[in-house]
């Protein structure tokens, strides 16, 4: 089990657990964390699962594909640590990860 903490834009924390191999997006949707609409279900087609990855975990994931970069450019309030959470696969290496959610998708 991997521990993931989601922090909503208003500061509300959601501590959830997920399994290795699940995406950060699924960790959120499976636990009813609001703020990730994930309209395409993780197919990388829609940019509605935008999140911010806390600094210490940023390098724990493969770098963005061109597709993800393209989609993110159109998300709202993108920052250096912006990622589409459907593209972030959880592993034991990121146990305890903290993910912050944008104000809107």
């Amino acid at each position: 089990m991997i521990n993931v903490t989601f922090i909503e834009h208003n500061g509300t924390e959601h501590k959830v657990t997920a399994e290795a191999g699940q995406s950060v997006m699924q960790a959120a949707t499976f636990n009813q964390v609001p703020g990730i609409s994930a309209d395409c279900g993780g197919a990388g087609a829609c940019a509605t699962c935008h999140t911010y990855v806390a600094a210490e975990w940023v390098d724990s994931f493969p770098t963005k594909t061109e597709m993800e970069t393209d989609l993110l450019e159109c998300a709202i309030d993108i920052r250096e640590n912006s990622r589409l959470s459907c593209q972030l696969v959880l592993s034991d290496a990121v146990d305890g990860i903290v993910i912050t959610l944008p104000e809107s998708q």
């Binding site: 940019a47 597709m67 393209d70 989609l71 450019e73 159109c74």
Partner: peptide, 9 residues
């Protein structure tokens, strides 16, 4: 086609 940014725009 393989231009996700254009789709979003």
């Amino acid at each position: 086609c393989n231009r996700a940014g254009d789709h979003m725009v």
